[in-house]
Design a protein around this nucleic acid. Structure first.
Lengths: 163, 163
DNA sequence: TATTGTTATACTCTATAACTATA
DNA sequence: TATAGTTATAGAGTATAACAATA
């Protein structure tokens, strides 16, 4: 429908990548891992959020709930460190989880500066629902990558995260 | 306020690795592609920015410059679409590139609503410097993933970006 | 002195609505 | 009516500085 006047370079795809809907090449950018990491991360996060829909849980919230469920009683600084977050940014996200009654800060006698973090019953219930819903999300990813491709991708991403 | 300052006193700044930097497991999260995509993307972007250092080019700026250099004369909406950006968010980023004399909007007679985007000589010079500097960045990634691992990762990320 | 949680702040990235000027 | 560029705004995410309470 658009004009689509003759562009001088309908250049070949050296390697097919994120070819824009209008057929414009991003050039050498498609060989940049950082660029494609960002495109993939945005797409996967959007699918994640869409999948959880009515549960209204964002990836960062899900991450925090996961770590707390796997390690009940951790301090805020431990959870945020495990997730690669600044402890300062953890506060507001956790405030919201606590406000929604999904997790809680519990005072501990041994160190009155810190809290032991726990999921509430509502938080555990929500995590079961989320995991159930996310099966569809995971299936879409496996359909794209294959079972073994998925495992290889996880391994490669893990090694990149330690860059 | 100045754009960015050096660090001060935070010694716990070390990136916590994906698994157990402090012995804390993120649980099932390490099987979530979205989570590891984010961790990897942040790490790779940080290495990208650090590598370009004095050139002061962010990934999004580099992406725009790359597309314009590969396709001179495109309109803003075409470039932003190719990069998966909203055209509305493109404006401010390009304003800055133009302010720095790296790229420019050129009026075209055929359609007075739009501009043809081009790199300036300074922009082309900077891209040569950036590509030179980024060789070290690319080498670090290849050291982590291997030559063929790199290619396989690019292919998998491309397919995910179309999710 | 160092750590824990916290507030304040700033910059980037993503997203939507609405405006203008053209087509 | 539709498109191109723009402005305004909002919400996440990431980052640093500084403070009070506690260790």
């Amino acid at each position: 429908m658009p004009p689509r006047k003759g562009r001088a370079d309908d250049k070949a795809k050296l390697d097919s990548t994120v070819e824009a809907a209008n057929g414009i090449s991003v050039g050498n950018l498609s060989n940049h891992i950082g660029y494609l990491l960002r495109r993939a991360q945005v797409a996967v996060f959007q699918d994640f959020v869409r999948t959880l829909g009515k549960l209204d849980i964002r990836p960062s919230q899900f991450g925090i709930l996961s770590v707390i469920e796997a390690n009940p009683g951790l301090k805020q600084s431990q959870v945020s460190s495990a997730l690669g977050m600044q402890r300062t940014n953890f506060v507001i996200v956790f405030d919201e989880l606590e406000r929604r009654g999904l997790a809680e800060r519990v005072s501990i006698a041994s160190d009155r500066r810190s809290y032991a973090l726990h999921l509430t019953d509502a938080g555990r219930t929500l995590m079961r629902q989320a995991e159930k819903a996310l099966e569809a999300h995971q299936r879409r990813l496996k359909d794209k990558l294959g079972e073994d491709g998925c495992a290889r991708l996880l391994a490669m991403l893990s090694s990149l995260a330690e860059l």
